[in-house]
Simulated scan of single mutants.
Amino acid sequence: MELADRAACTGRSGLNWLLHRAAQKLGAAIQEAAARHDLTARGQLVLTALCAEEDSRRTQLALGQALGLDKTTLTAELDRLERAGLIVREPHPNDRRVRVPVITDRGRSVQDEVAELHQRVEREFTAHLAPQQCRELQATLERLIASCGGPDSGSCL
């Protein structure tokens, strides 16, 4: 790599900085949308995961691993969601010591509304890009993530 190329990867124009700042700005707008329904962005992520897997329910441990959330963080989030009536935790059919978080009808309704808000936020965030540029950006980010190999680990938030 030439010195000029390396210099372009540092400071305010570096890829890490640009991706991080874009994620911060989008994340703040997403959090604001979730807060309109008294949710955190992480809570909405949990509700989304529970909606997606309704036919194959995961234990709390498996859900945490899938979302890259440690046990303490996930338990606190599930507690909040349960107090709000958005989920219930049922005993696992094969091991009553294990709990399975299940989204409620109210939780599904809130998740749908917040997901719609998130889509609007993403559209507003990328409004200055042409539709083709948005598709290319998403495809490029997906390729970058996939090119790292190995499991997709780490917190989503």
Score class of each variant (00 low, 15 high):
residue 1 M to C: 12
residue 2 E to W: 14
residue 2 E to T: 15
residue 4 A to S: 13
residue 5 D to H: 11
residue 6 R to Q: 12
residue 7 A to W: 13
residue 9 C to N: 15
residue 9 C to D: 15
residue 11 G to W: 07
residue 11 G to Q: 06
residue 11 G to Y: 08
residue 13 S to L: 13
residue 13 S to I: 15
residue 14 G to Q: 07
residue 15 L to I: 15
residue 15 L to F: 13
residue 16 N to Y: 11
residue 16 N to T: 14
residue 19 L to Y: 11
residue 20 H to K: 12
residue 20 H to C: 14
residue 21 R to L: 03
residue 21 R to D: 08
residue 21 R to P: 04
residue 23 A to D: 12
residue 24 Q to H: 09
residue 25 K to M: 10
residue 26 L to Y: 06
residue 29 A to R: 07
residue 29 A to V: 09
residue 30 I to T: 13
residue 30 I to C: 15
residue 31 Q to K: 09
residue 32 E to K: 01
residue 33 A to M: 01
residue 33 A to E: 00
residue 33 A to K: 00
residue 36 R to W: 04
residue 36 R to F: 07
residue 37 H to R: 10
residue 37 H to L: 06
residue 37 H to P: 08
residue 38 D to Q: 13
residue 40 T to W: 13
residue 41 A to V: 11
residue 43 G to Y: 03
residue 43 G to K: 00
residue 44 Q to M: 14
residue 44 Q to A: 09
residue 45 L to K: 03
residue 47 L to F: 02
residue 49 A to T: 05
residue 49 A to Q: 07
residue 52 A to R: 15
residue 53 E to S: 10
residue 54 E to K: 14
residue 56 S to W: 14
residue 57 R to K: 06
residue 59 T to L: 08
residue 60 Q to K: 05
residue 62 A to S: 15
residue 63 L to P: 00
residue 63 L to F: 02
residue 64 G to P: 01
residue 64 G to Y: 04
residue 66 A to F: 09
residue 71 K to T: 12
residue 71 K to I: 13
residue 76 A to H: 15
residue 77 E to I: 04
residue 77 E to G: 03
residue 79 D to R: 13
residue 80 R to F: 14
residue 82 E to C: 05
residue 84 A to M: 03
residue 84 A to C: 02
residue 88 V to Q: 04
residue 88 V to C: 03
residue 90 E to D: 09
residue 91 P to R: 12
residue 91 P to L: 10
residue 93 P to K: 07
residue 93 P to L: 07
residue 95 D to K: 00
residue 97 R to S: 02
residue 97 R to V: 00
residue 98 V to F: 01
residue 99 R to C: 04
residue 101 P to Q: 02
residue 102 V to A: 03
residue 103 I to N: 00
residue 103 I to E: 00
residue 104 T to S: 08
residue 105 D to I: 13
residue 106 R to M: 04
residue 107 G to E: 00
residue 108 R to E: 07
residue 108 R to M: 08
residue 109 S to Q: 10
residue 112 D to L: 07
residue 113 E to F: 05
residue 118 H to R: 10
residue 118 H to I: 13
residue 120 R to G: 04
residue 120 R to D: 07
residue 122 E to N: 04
residue 124 E to N: 05
residue 124 E to K: 00
residue 125 F to K: 00
residue 126 T to Q: 02
residue 126 T to D: 08
residue 127 A to V: 01
residue 129 L to C: 08
residue 130 A to N: 11
residue 131 P to W: 09
residue 134 C to W: 06
residue 134 C to Y: 05
residue 135 R to F: 07
residue 135 R to A: 10
residue 135 R to P: 02
residue 136 E to F: 10
residue 136 E to G: 11
residue 137 L to A: 06
residue 139 A to C: 03
residue 140 T to Q: 04
residue 142 E to A: 14
residue 143 R to G: 05
residue 145 I to T: 12
residue 146 A to M: 08
residue 147 S to C: 13
residue 148 C to Q: 09
residue 150 G to Q: 08
residue 151 P to S: 04
residue 154 G to W: 09
residue 154 G to V: 05
residue 154 G to T: 04
residue 155 S to H: 07
residue 156 C to L: 15
residue 156 C to W: 14
